[in-house]
């Protein structure tokens, strides 16, 4: 194993896929000489040139729609929308065009493109630069959505997404770019993490916690604490929310009888409610407690650190939620 920054794992994924396949190109905000907003594409503009690492104007509808046109004509574009919030500016192209063209065309036209974007609470970026909109994009049939929680999944999911023949939105977490994670050594067999497959990152027999993105790492720390007290918390990293790996969740809940869903998105009409109801027919008689959830409350993300810290599913809140269920 080696220790790498998350941003370098993202760069490796893009670099390897661009080197492997000449139809792969990158476009979006700050993708050119700046090397990415978080330096996650540093050096690639110099290596692949301006046509393949294209800085766009701040025209989200325009360049997401252009990516759709590229995907329809033989390319595999990887577009970058800096923050999830900005996807709302491009929502027609995402939800009406990118997601639906394959179905509307009677299945004749693939749309092999990737849209990278970011989420992440805790940086005082307020209500229009912090939102977790996973539930919004997950609502539309036709999209695949990957949500990595560490450098290994960021690289493995992104590589798979680029090779996929359908539109995939990869939701990275900006808190991760400057953080170091473990990654298999270079030269080892490349890892392509399948879309629609969750991972059990910590095994336990007493309660299942399901999450994605940064809260997964928080849950792992909490699970390690409980373990010292002899309480087994099983932590599942969704990795993808579309397709949703219901089977892995169901198998775990049948074992533990308890399920806590943790998500940084708004509580109401979010992915936690959807997961709970979609597995209910399969786990109803196995449950020892009601399924519970811990999310960000239904409030726009506040600016002041004093307020923002109140909405983050942190270790204290997760620990407390678990205790209430045991």
């Amino acid at each position: 194993m080696r220790t790498v920054y998350y941003r370098d794992a993202v760069r490796e994924a893009i670099d390897e896929e661009m080197a492997r396949d000449p139809s792969v190109l990158v476009l979006g905000e700050d993708m050119g000489p700046n090397g990415g907003t978080w330096k996650e594409t540093r050096g690639l503009w110099e290596k692949y040139g301006d046509l393949r690492m294209k800085d766009t104007p701040i025209s989200e509808s325009g360049f997401v729609g252009m990516s759709v046109g590229m995907a329809l004509t033989g390319l595999r574009p990887v577009a970058k929308v800096m923050f999830s919030d900005f996807m709302l500016v491009a929502m027609d192209q995402i939800a009406n065009q990118m997601a639906k063209i394959t179905y509307m065309s009677g299945g004749q036209m693939p749309v092999p493109m990737v849209l990278r974007t970011t989420i992440g609470l805790g940086r005082s970026s307020a209500a229009q630069h912090s939102q977790n909109l996973n539930a919004v994009i997950a609502h539309f049939p036709g999209l695949k959505i990957a949500v990595p929680s560490n450098a290994r999944t960021a690289k493995g999911l992104l590589k798979t997404a680029i090779r996929d023949n359908d539109p995939v939105i990869v939701v990275e977490n900006r808190l991760h770019y400057g953080r170091q994670f473990e990654l298999p050594d270079e030269g080892e067999e490349e890892e392509l993490i399948p879309l629609g497959k969750a991972a059990v990152l910590h095994e336990g027999a007493d309660l299942t916690v399901v999450s994605c993105s940064e809260p997964v790492n928080t849950c792992l720390r909490v699970a390690a604490e409980f373990e010292k007290d002899g309480i087994g918390i099983e932590v599942i990293d969704l990795q993808s929310i579309r397709p949703l790996d219901r089977e892995t969740i169901i198998r775990s809940v049948k074992k533990t009888g308890r399920l806590l869903l943790v998500d940084e998105g708004y509580t109401s009409f979010g992915i936690t409610g959807e997961i709970a109801l979609s597995i209910m027919p399969d786990v109803f008689y196995d449950l020892d407690a009601p399924i519970m959830r811990l999310c960000s409350p239904d409030v726009p993300v506040p600016f002041s650190p004093a307020l923002e810290k109140l909405i983050i599913p942190d270790e204290n809140r997760i620990r407390e939620a678990i205790r209430k269920m045991l």
Partner: peptide, 22 residues
């Protein structure tokens, strides 16, 4: 493609043009 969204096809056509160049 035809397109049910007014203006929805303009960026898609522009992307196809980029693809021709590419």
């Amino acid at each position: 493609g035809a397109n049910g969204i007014v203006g929805g096809g303009i960026p898609i056509a522009t992307g196809a043009a980029y693809s021709c160049r590419y």
